[in-house]
């Protein structure tokens, strides 16, 4: 919990330093923002570690099909990375790059989830075959 307050302080300091730099050196101010985002991202992902352990425990308790949770986790990772990168692109004034990256992230997630859709289709066929 202590880390949260420290992270909030880091964000405020980064914003103020970025504002001070932004007038003269916009590129270095953007790099400063990116550094802040990286540090916060590392904190956030570290906090997610126990949550993922809990999810794996739930998977074993519920006896879910193996590999499905892995695909979901990959999708979450791609979504997080694409979202952070797209927001930084928007901040730097490159909205088009950010939007394209988000589109790429969506495409990769759809590609990754093909096995889930196929399993769903197989299930539907089995149900229809039983009728």
């Amino acid at each position: 919990m202590e880390t949260f307050w420290k992270a909030a302080a880091i964000v405020l300091i980064t914003v103020i330093l970025g504002l001070a730099l932004g007038k003269q050196e916009k590129d270095i101010a953007t790099v400063l923002t990116l550094t802040g985002c990286c540090i916060l991202g590392i904190f956030a992902v570290s906090y997610l570690e126990p949550v993922l352990d809990l999810l794996q425990e739930l998977e074993s308790v519920g006896q879910l099909q193996s590999g499905m949770l892995g695909i979901l986790l990959k999708a979450v990772g791609i979504a997080l990375t694409a979202e952070i990168s797209a927001m930084i692109c928007s901040d730097a004034g490159n909205n088009s790059l950010g939007k394209t990256l988000q589109m790429l992230g969506s495409a990769v997630i759809v590609y990754l989830s093909i096995p889930i859709f196929q399993a769903f289709l197989t299930l539907i066929r089995e149900i229809l075959g039983q009728l």
Partner: peptide
């Protein structure tokens, strides 16, 4: 950051 995301997810 990317290594952490890769290992965790």
């Amino acid at each position: 950051l990317f290594d952490l995301v890769k290992t965790l997810f």
